[in-house]
């Protein structure tokens, strides 16, 4: 928040204050349909505690809520109901797609499941996971809060948010210690072209052959000694 101090007066942009108030007092409408509801409940309860972000109370009426949390699988039978609920919400409103099924249909690709709720309503934040960990839920909520602070309700949903991109770069930096994100997209698994399991045990993206680590399991000096004892003894 930019501010200047002139004696007893503190000037700042009005939007900043209003967005700050909005992001820390989000009233949620939990549109819970499936198993992701369990993780939503556990993020709301005491251990992971979404209340410290101000997003504590679920209002079970769309007229009283700001954020529509679409939690779980949405079928085609449910789609008009979801659209109805979204239309009844008053501006400003935001939508969070919680879980794999709400983001893209999840592992259901059949006659009855809507392949992602962004086909019917505009979505602000997608939280991936099946189900997502509560920490991921809180991370998604924080990202929504950044969006509210920087863009506010007047931003077009779907536009590029620079603060979100910076946040993404920082997150990649933090996670690069743990994850190796492949440079090339894996289109076909060389071991079985019909398989849609792009990873199998022992298969490496970049090398293209089975990686046998001879010291796997024997990383400590004691382990290496044991391995040598097995050979000789």
């Amino acid at each position: 928040m930019e501010s200047a101090h002139y004696g007893d007066f503190l000037t700042t942009k009005f939007d900043n204050v209003v967005n700050w108030a909005r992001k820390f007092s989000l009233f949620q409408y939990p549109f819970v349909t499936a198993c992701c509801g369990m993780e939503y409940m556990s993020a709301s309860c005491s251990h992971y505690d979404v209340s410290r972000f101000g997003a504590e109370i679920p209002r079970f009426s769309p007229r009283q809520s700001d954020v529509l949390w679409v939690v779980g699988t949405v079928t085609h039978k449910m789609t008009p109901i979801l659209r109805n609920v979204y239309d009844q919400m008053a501006e400003p409103k935001w939508v969070i797609a919680f879980g794999a099924c709400a983001s893209s249909g999840g592992f259901y690709q059949n006659y009855s499941v809507l392949q992602g709720i962004d086909r019917v309503i505009p979505v602000d934040v997608y939280i991936a996971g099946c189900p997502p960990r509560p920490e991921a839920v809180l991370d998604g909520l924080m990202e929504l809060q950044n969006r509210i602070q920087n863009d506010g309700p007047s931003a077009l949903q779907g536009s590029i948010n620079s603060a979100a991109i910076n946040h993404l770069d920082q997150k990649k930096l933090q996670l690069s210690r743990f994850l190796e994100i492949p440079e090339t997209e894996v289109v076909e698994n060389a071991q079985n072209p019909k398989s849609n399991r792009a990873t199998k045990a022992g298969y490496s993206y970049s090398k293209g052959y089975i990686d046998t680590n001879a010291t796997l399991g024997y990383d400590t000096p004691k382990g290496r000694r044991d391995k040598d004892n097995l050979k000789t003894g």
Binding site: H76, T79, R83, N110, Y111, L114, Q115, D118, R119, V120
Partner: peptide, 26 residues
């Protein structure tokens, strides 16, 4: 839908759906 001659992927949506770019075809 559970007859073998009903295509598994065939959807009959109740609303008009937006176009969404699909990058992966697993």
């Amino acid at each position: 839908p559970l007859r073998k001659d009903y295509p598994m992927d065939k959807q009959q949506p109740l609303l008009e759906l937006n176009d969404v770019e699909e990058r992966y075809h697993y």
